[in-house]
Amino acid sequence: MKATYSLFLVFGLVLVALIGVGGLGLHYLFGVIIPYVAVLCFILGFICKVLNWGRSPVPFRIPTTAGQQFSLPWIKQNKIDNPSTMWGVVLRMFFEIFTFRSLFRNTKVELYDGPKLAYASAKWLWLFALMFHYAFLVIFIRHMRFFTEPVPSIFQFIDKVDGVLQVGAPHIYITEIIILVGLAFLLLRRILDPKIRYISLPADYFPLFLILGIVVSGILMRFFVKTDVVGIKQITMGLVMLKPVLPKSVGTIFYVHLFLVSVLLIYFPFSKLMHMGGVFLSPTRNMINNNRMKRHVNPWNYPVKVHTYEAYEDEFREKMVEAGLPVDKPLEQSPAENKE
């Protein structure tokens, strides 16, 4: 139900663009205004979200780690999974961001007859997530050919490597296949596994369907519903050079693709997709575990007015001595008392 709801939401968005551009001819709205709003919303929203996270207090090191911490010299420390130095943390973050180490530790739980509960390693999520993210990255970088003139050789090179199979004309990109396979797995995992289906929300399905919509509209535009690509570059270059032009030769399919991307950009800062920025702020990954070496004072401790024992004894010393209680400092004999 949640999945169909999200799917129809994406269908609705496609329909909005189809009717808006194809039917009503609102090219300026869909080709200029919405993309600009989307980019602004994405950048500002992203910054606000991260600043908001940055303002949250970081009281102490969270020692939730996956390895032996620094201890006695004859106990071998896991220097990356439980780092006690800045470089260890840098490596841990590097592996987290580039190789999804946390997902690599994913496990599955299964109940067998008996009943027996069994835990096992499950690497599929890690593998397909890795495929999806890297394919998306390459596709994102490849699109820079529409935003630069002349196209820098690095983007040309990536384009060539991605199209190295030279199948068909235009060439099929390897990443097109990889991202579809990755998305299919991430989606089917939520739909077919009852446990994951139970915890999945529209906010989990919607980004998947939205990105799938973007990929499918892109593939359609490249291979099936063809349109004037040079005209598209005129639009994209006009947008980034702040002199928008809208050639009439560009078909509605491009505006559908652009509208879905705009929706993704607008949706991004308010959604789970913010893990792009959030991964850098993971408290269990970006802190040195040096609890035993350095004192970490809780920074939001309220400045409590304390009454130390010394001050207490100064105040009540005479009465304490009278009552026969032991005192740290003996009662000073005043000169007057000595004379008596």
Binding site: R145, F146, E149, P150, V151, F155, Q156, D159, K160, Q166, A169, P170, V229, V230, K233
Partner: peptide
């Protein structure tokens, strides 16, 4: 156009 769009047909 091919250069402008970084297309390299074979």
């Amino acid at each position: 156009c091919h250069a402008s769009l970084a297309v390299s047909p074979y």
